[in-house]
Design a protein around this nucleic acid. Structure first.
Lengths: 224, 224
DNA sequence: TCAAAAGTGTTAGATTTACACCCATGA
DNA sequence: TCATGGGTGTAAATCTAACACTTTTGA
């Protein structure tokens, strides 16, 4: 009998804010709750933390459950613990955000789980405190995206500078000057121009770039 | 019988990183653990989250328990949840940092609880993951201090510009140019010069300033 | 031939940094 | 009288922001 037992235990869950990007819009993966309480309401995807797994592991497992994806970039958003945040029982939840490339997520799997990509800026009212979670996740992600090259996780391996710019505009919520943007990109040697051309988005065709991890590790100076 | 019961519950605690400032050093309040596991090790002050209180409330209550203080500025640092972070049982902990004025904390009370102010930059090895908690708390606090006028919570009501500068130097970890610092302060009308003079720190005496909350609310432009 | 997106430099203004001396006073 | 911390301005360098036209090509 230790001092622990004087205190009460609570359920702990993780909720995932899964961000994607679709040409010009930041997206979040949400679905209709399949269980009570709150059945039918829009909600983030989440799960309970098991006794033998860390919070980070629980978040990764939950994401994997939904998407089949591994080694996804995830960061903790914070703990949400109002007493009545879950209408059923006392559950505190640790929110995590994840960045994935929409195209890497099988449409079949997505439909099976009944989740949808919704514009981050036009989210419906979500279950419990999930809107707050998204807001905080977005804010943190935006901050981190200025100083670390994590945005590439939302893009295909090869991307055009316009795509990259649209991504930063979508996340930052404001337009960016094309020439100033490209000037800054050119200074970062780890964003490499390939000899491939994207012909889908324009008649003229746009050069495709890629992010070189090794090169970044050597001189990690990122600012956008 | 709901779906909750299939899952296991865990203990949830809060740990407080209580920051203070002592003329030129950022301080953290730590003490020797009074209970097993880890009895005798240096540790942050913490407590368990009760069934009927929010995480924020638990943090405020824990801080109050130790200091008798209320309405203290506190912010969540994040959730720490490695499986074996607590050697006794599975406990996840939510860290919070608090900013207090060292002089507002009764020395008597401090000694009663057996806690001490230790230089944040020279902390000993702490129990479990508490060093990580402090590191993250410091980082977050530093960030927030650049864009929000929270530093004043660590200073007396009236302070000299040198004290303020030392505070920013201690938190930021690097020296600041006196003239540039004062130039920026002068632009912020909510940092008001009083007609009082501090004679303790110099023969000549230094003007005492105060932070005017109302004035700040009217035009909140803070950057340091 | 024209619509649509790609690509490219320069300049003015704002911000940031570096820097050194006189002042007032108590010991 | 001198040691100590208080108080003050300017100039160079850097960074940021604004801005418009030419190119390519598929329809």
């Amino acid at each position: 009998m230790t001092f622990y037992s004087e205190h009460s235990k609570v359920w702990v869950s993780v909720d995932c804010i899964i961000f994607g990007f679709d040409e010009s819009k930041l997206k979040v993966l949400i679905g209709r709750r399949q269980m009570d309480p709150g059945r039918g309401e829009w909600s983030l995807y989440g799960g309970f933390v098991a006794a033998d797994e860390s919070l980070d592991d629980a978040a990764a497992r939950t994401l994997h459950e939904l998407t089949g994806m591994e080694n996804v970039f995830m960061r903790q958003v914070g703990a949400f613990g109002s007493v009545d945040r879950d209408p059923g029982e006392r559950v505190i939840s640790i929110a995590y955000y994840a960045l994935i490339n929409v195209k890497d997520y099988s449409e079949t799997l997505r439909k099976e789980h009944g989740v949808e990509w919704v514009d981050a800026s036009e989210l419906p009212r979500l279950y419990s405190d999930h809107n707050q979670m998204v807001a905080k996740a977005w804010k943190l992600m935006k901050q981190k995206m200025r100083t670390e090259p994590i945005g590439f996780r939302l893009l295909p391996e090869l991307f055009t500078l316009t795509q990259l710019q649209r991504l930063y505009e979508a996340v930052g919520g404001e337009e960016i000057d094309k020439r100033n943007f490209r000037k800054r990109i050119k200074e970062m040697d780890f964003i490499e121009k390939t000899n491939k051309i994207d012909k889908k988005s324009s008649k003229r065709g746009a050069a495709l770039y890629c992010f070189n991890h090794n090169s970044y590790e050597k001189s990690p100076d990122f600012k956008l």
